[in-house]
């Protein structure tokens, strides 16, 4: 592909906003609705879309996002091309098969295959594969639980930790951004404050006196 920054006419240091502005300007010009039947415009639009996706996808969850239709499937786990979902010796053949399915984004089949493993044989790798498949199906609660399980069963494995980090990434990014909206009240800090106050007042009122309130 051509240099996506050149296609959009922005510098490689351009901010998200600049990239988006450039995209919108070009899209107005080359959109098929504005150029019906124009093959050249259609081709340009494809390049512009691809360039946008290449730049903006890189800036969200480290390349995991696949919204552009170039990775297909919606949700961040559309494409597990990165991450070494490779095979390890001692891999149960069901887990092997599941990881294969996952590489081709066939998450439902992967989950099906994993069901064949009896509970007593569910090792860290099984939980890892299951977490990947569930993430692909947008079963985020289960995926996170299973990734945590894999990490706790084998804390030294970097793949498992990596997966858990990626699963937590959107929440972490979101919470950081949310924190900049200072109108929101933090219930945890209120709770701590109130608990502290009630503890102190209980200690002070040991003698059974009724202070004030």
């Amino acid at each position: 592909m051509n240099d996506p920054y050149k296609v959009l006419g922005v510098s490689p240091n351009a901010s998200d906003d600049e990239v988006k502005r450039a995209y919108r300007q070009l899209a107005k010009k080359y959109h098929p609705d504005a150029n019906p039947g124009d093959r050249h415009a259609e081709q340009r639009m494809k390049e512009i879309n691809a360039a946008y996706d290449a730049i903006i996808n890189k800036k969200t969850t480290a390349g995991q996002s696949a919204y552009g239709g170039y990775g297909g499937g919606y949700g961040s786990y559309g494409g597990y091309r990165s991450g070494r979902a490779g095979y390890e010796s001692g891999d149960n053949s069901y887990v092997e098969a599941a990881l294969n399915y996952i590489a081709y984004r066939r998450y439902a089949e992967a989950l099906n295959v994993l069901q064949n493993v009896p509970t007593s044989e569910k090792n860290a790798r099984w939980y890892y594969a299951s977490a990947l498949a569930n993430a692909g199906m947008n079963n985020r609660v289960t995926a996170k639980q299973q990734a945590e399980r894999a990490v706790s069963m084998d804390p030294t494995n970097p793949d498992y930790r990596d997966l858990l980090d990626r699963l937590n990434n959107p929440s972490a990014t979101y919470s950081r951004q949310r924190g900049t909206y200072s109108t929101s009240v933090n219930p945890t800090s209120i709770c701590f404050g109130l608990c502290l106050c009630s503890l102190i007042s209980r200690l002070c009122c040991r003698g059974g006196c009724y202070r004030g309130w």
Partner: peptide, 18 residues
């Protein structure tokens, strides 16, 4: 709920909105 809004926000930020 944070995970869900995290997904929502991530998708939101992908869009070329002004």
């Amino acid at each position: 709920m944070t995970m869900l809004m995290g997904e929502c926000a991530e998708a939101f930020e992908y869009l070329p909105l002004q």
